[in-house]
Design a protein around this nucleic acid. Structure first.
Lengths: 342, 342
DNA sequence: ATTAGCACTCTAAGATAGAGAGTGCTAATT
DNA sequence: AATTAGCACTCTCTATCTTAGAGTGCTAAT
């Protein structure tokens, strides 16, 4: 069986109509809305073939048809117009507007996830940049008060990482200076992961040399016991996806929320797309999660200093508007890559 | 009509049973579970009185009874045992454990909101400390790369506030030092709100004196155009409240989410409790929000350096476990006040 | 003041029936 | 060989009805 052009048109029609109406699509509907020069009976014949090929399915014998995951896949790969201009001028302006104000890093992630939610009517996702492969460039100690230090670690890509360090003794600026000198000398240009691992050894080594610093070294030891791989996912507004008809049964919603609020689940899905240059679309069962069978995730890398460092995404029902979502992600990822250090 | 002791017991019983079963409570149930030395007919008589007084209501004629907002209010004010020990040892340990690691500020807020969600089975809320009344203590510029500066503003209470400043020209350390000296000199000890307002004037004043710094002043102008009153609400996991039977209809859930994801709504509710020394309980219609009529919010201030600066809270259906929620909030607020600078 | 007894009310759940949507097949047509 | 009109068939969805059961409120007796 070969898929001819008309069948492609029909498949495309089913996907489109199903995406917009959320109802199984009948042969009549297709003829009506797409003005095909054939009768509904002919369309029905083609539908039958498309179903046999696994692109479509019926919820029950006397219902219209809707795309299978394979159907969506074909649509996304072969049929969908990659029309980046499906964003209106207003929407583009809205996005640009959001990034004008000089925000701090966390805020940018939050804003972005909410923006994606609003524009796609689904759940926006942002995977914060991962610093595992970054190298140490600088370290600063700032006294917040006489008991707490703010330690700021700056990496080669201009990202930073902060911890608050509790000190129970007075620490002179001089000592801090010595320490930051030592750390810089020992670890400058070294991989953060290595810094993490070797800090302990160095602490012991130097604690002989600078006995006065011993107590501080202990603090630093705790302070640097950080998991560099602190991949963080920011979720946008949930209120939009809540309104999607596929979640009108509370039970499905429960499964969805249990899944998405377990951070690792999403990290696993999004992470793999950081290094992909193209939009990454994962449809339904491709997610490999029983619970998420009727959801799709679309992701897009973003760059920092020209290098892929994180990703943004949309999570919605498989019946989501792929074209629109892609446009939104492309546009926002590009903005983000501009905003974040080039 | 006077409420005698038996009636109080009965009201208490209705609240308890309704909280645990989520079903209207019958006279029989009360006798059965509370071993009252009277018959169900007598209980029915009292129930009638309690209903006439407005403490109870029936969903329909032949159903059991459940508390009205007034009923919950009476329960909360007069009947409920304020038993802080309703937390198990394990739960306490779990809380303490969470705060052992030296986390950054944002993380603490996130962790806390999630912790509250999990322990109360409802939605945890955290209102980040407000810095409007803080005064400037210190300012630091850290170069992230040759195009961006991390500006850290430290306040008298040891809180800090950060912005990223984009610079399109090289700025010498010397110049930065001069600027931070000037800012410290002019604004040290001054209210942040005032700093915000007067920065502009000062910039013009000094731009005559130090013409070399002009371009930097412009940047700082943008940088300090911050709303100090950036009250931020952190929401914990939604998955728990989703499972409450009052939200089994998707429509109600939609209303709820539309409300809670509009940050100002929650800020308005929580803000007022920052200065209250006691647990603050707002029941149903007391929230003054049509949409939130069947929800309650419980809040508790937390301290920084002994002063009330923010609040944590729980949002759940009016049929929530007030006693448990209060215990959770008390305990966490105390931990938080210890963790954050004393 | 309390209680047993009972009629009454309302809901929740199950059963039944009919309308309507949409299909798949067949036979006729182009 | 492809297309189409016609139609029987299937399944869902909605409405209506019925019944069981839970729980009340009232009355009269204790």
């Amino acid at each position: 069986m070969i898929i001819n052009d008309r069948m492609k048109t029909i498949l495309n029609a089913v996907v489109h109509l199903y995406i917009t109406t959320a109802e199984p699509v009948s042969s009549e509907m297709i003829v009506c809305y797409y003005g095909l020069p054939v009768s509904s009976a002919t369309v029905r014949h083609d539908l039958l073939v498309l179903e046999k090929l696994g692109f479509l399915k019926k919820p029950h014998t006397s219902a219209g048809r809707l795309p299978t995951d394979k159907g969506y896949r074909f649509y996304v790969d072969k049929l969908m117009e990659k029309n980046i201009n499906s964003l209106s001028e207003e929407e583009k302006e809205e996005i640009i507007e959001q990034y004008k104000i000089g925000r701090d890093f966390n805020e940018i992630m939050i804003i972005t996830s909410k923006l994606i939610s609003r524009l796609t009517n689904n759940l926006g996702l942002v995977l914060a940049p991962n610093m595992v492969r970054d190298t140490l460039k600088d370290i600063h100690f700032i006294a917040l008060d006489n008991q707490r230090l703010l330690v700021t670690l700056i990496t080669n890509s201009g990202l930073f990482f902060q911890k608050i360090m509790k000190v129970n003794c007075d620490i002179s600026e001089e000592n801090l200076e010595t320490i930051s000198q030592i750390i810089k000398k020992e670890f400058y240009g070294k991989n953060l992961e290595m810094v993490n691992e070797e800090m302990l050894k160095k602490i012991y080594q130097y604690s002989f040399e600078y006995q006065a610093l011993e107590s501080i070294w202990n603090l630093i030891e705790n302070c640097f016991d950080f998991t560099v791989d602190n991949t963080k996912v920011f979720l946008g507004n949930r209120s939009y996806i809540l309104k999607q008809p596929e979640f009108k049964e509370i039970e499905k919603l429960n499964y969805l929320f249990d899944f998405i609020e377990e951070e690792e689940n999403l990290v696993k899905i999004i992470k793999r797309s950081i290094l992909k240059k193209q939009i990454d679309i994962i449809i339904g069962s491709e997610l490999g999660q029983e619970i998420m069978q009727n959801c799709s995730v679309i992701t897009r890398q973003y760059l920092i200093k020209g290098k892929p460092r994180g990703a943004i995404g949309v999570l919605g029902p498989t019946r989501m508007d792929y074209s629109k979502s892609i446009s939104v992600l492309e546009f926002i990822a590009n903005r983000l890559s501009e905003i974040l250090p080039e």
